[in-house]
Amino acid sequence: MATEAEEATGLSFHPMEQFLVKPLFGDGPVHWYTPTNVTLWMFITVAAIVALLVMGTRGRAIVPNRVQSVAELAYGMVHKMVEDVAGKDALKYFPYIMTLFMFITFSNMLGLLPKSFTTTSHIAVTGVLALAVFISVTVIGFVKNGTHFLGLFWVTSAPLALRPILAVIEVISYFVRPVSHSIRLAGNMMAGHAVIKVFAGFAAIAAISPLSILAVTAVYGLEVLVSFIQAYVFTILTCVYLKDALHPAH
């Protein structure tokens, strides 16, 4: 399509092309069941997690090897997070939170491989993750506490006159949670990858290319950090929401 312009300047900018959802086989339309690059990279994510957490711990060694150490480190980190943030009674939900953390971490990290596809850069994916957390947390809140759960919105420590206003604000902030929860993750992933692509595009100009490659390296390093931190943030927010559901009193 725009080959003429590319040939004229030597530049090619397709920062968003990496996020395209494409069928793996052929060029047909993307139906809900079509195996796409989403399927492929989610499968790779699952395979990597299984390799770490299942294959890595196959030895069940008292003195762990490196892979088992990493698996135990991840387990210990999330387990401690759930226990510290959401309390001991939240450990029942630990497997689901661990699933979320491992899926997001591995999707983010695998998305940093060149030519890969970042599933967590899509709002459809993070939206489902966040909505699942939102709905399950709300259901848990009502099941565990009944109508007491609504006390979350009724700030008893505030003066009576302010409480209705605060209640409105609390309700709004409660329903904004899944939106911020999902857009934070997808936005971070998308922005970082797009920035890398833009810098990489400039590398075609000889005069700028050293700077461009340096910038790509720097942003890549930053993205590794962001990938982990966003997974961590998503998980810890899930724990915070879960705590609100289990202990709604302010």
């Binding site: 959802v21 993307v30 809900w32 796409t36 489902v128």
Partner: peptide, 16 residues
């Protein structure tokens, strides 16, 4: 933005 191409949403959600 491919992220806002709603035609791929069912596919992504299904596989997710």
């Amino acid at each position: 933005m491919p992220q806002l191409d709603f035609s791929t949403f069912p596919n992504q959600i299904f596989w997710l």
